[in-house]
Design a binder for these strands. Structure first.
Length: 257
DNA sequence: ATGGCTACAGCATGTAGA
């Protein structure tokens, strides 16, 4: 069995203890983090190595974005930038080769800031991701994409009224771009195993977690070869209930060997 | 509809998150 996980930590320096507890309890083989909110050299690594994980971070100056992979199995970093725009300097992508597959961890642009330009960047980013996934699938390469997609794919994926219909997370163009990924043959792992259920991965700070007023925006997409091995998919809400939590909580997917 | 939170840069509030 192979265990993959994704967790938007909303500052790794604030959430290192939460990540450490998650690793020790859930013991994923590969964990992808988003929103490090620090430079590469500022990302804590030692305490995760103490739990048996090797860390590779892609940070950014200015306290924004940032992604990382933590692994207890052998891996090689295959990319630190999403192909399709070499001028993109935002730390939103890391891809590794591990266990005979390619796994990408993403922090997809939110798209609500920066006006029309900010939203266009989100859609362009999604199109770049679609093209990459198309290449991988055309080559029959086992491929997984997991992370914070900043997309509620359908109305089942947000608490009623949690977002206005104009929000970049639910806009028709955003959802069409998501379906573009599905139509290639990528499987939404959590939804595949929990059809029709309201399952969230994010709750805004305040009383929203207690009220279960949440969003499902952290996802795991699997190529056909990996989808056939899908054995489990779940949201781990425990870290969201801890002291001083991230506003997101991990998603875990298990694949048969 | 959103910032009533939270984090960050940097030192006062502005920006961003979603």
């Amino acid at each position: 069995m192979l265990k993959l996980a994704t967790f938007n930590v909303n500052s790794i320096r604030k959430r290192a203890p939460h990540v450490r507890r998650f690793l020790d309890r859930a013991q994923p083989d590969l964990l992808f983090l988003q929103e490090l909110k620090c430079k590469t050299e500022e990302c804590p690594a030692l305490e995760f190595e103490g739990s048996g994980y090797r860390v590779h971070a892609v940070g950014q100056s200015g306290g924004r974005n940032g992604v990382a992979v933590l692994s207890r199995i052998p891996f090689e970093v295959a990319a630190e930038v999403l192909p399709g725009d070499e001028t993109d300097s935002q730390a939103r992508y890391i891809e590794v080769a591990a266990a005979g597959m390619r796994v990408a961890g993403i922090y997809l642009p939110n798209g609500n800031s920066g006006g029309d330009e900010g939203y266009a960047y989100k859609l362009t980013w999604m199109e770049r991701l679609r093209r990459l996934a198309a290449e991988r699938l055309d080559a029959f390469q086992p491929f997984a994409v997991l992370g914070d997609f900043n997309v509620c794919p359908t109305d089942l994926d947000l608490a009623p009224g949690a977002l206005p219909p104009t929000d970049a997370l639910v806009r028709p163009e955003t959802r069409a771009a998501w379906r573009g990924l599905e139509h290639l043959g990528m499987t939404d792992a959590l939804r595949a195993l929990h059809p029709g259920q309201r399952v969230y991965t994010y709750w805004d700070y305040g009383a929203n977690f207690d009220l279960n007023r949440g969003l499902r925006i952290d996802h795991v997409l699997l190529s056909p070869e990996l989808a056939e091995r899908l054995a489990g998919a779940e949201v781990d809400t425990a870290p969201r209930a801890e002291e001083s939590p991230s506003d997101h909580t991990p998603v875990i997917v298990t694949l048969e060997a």
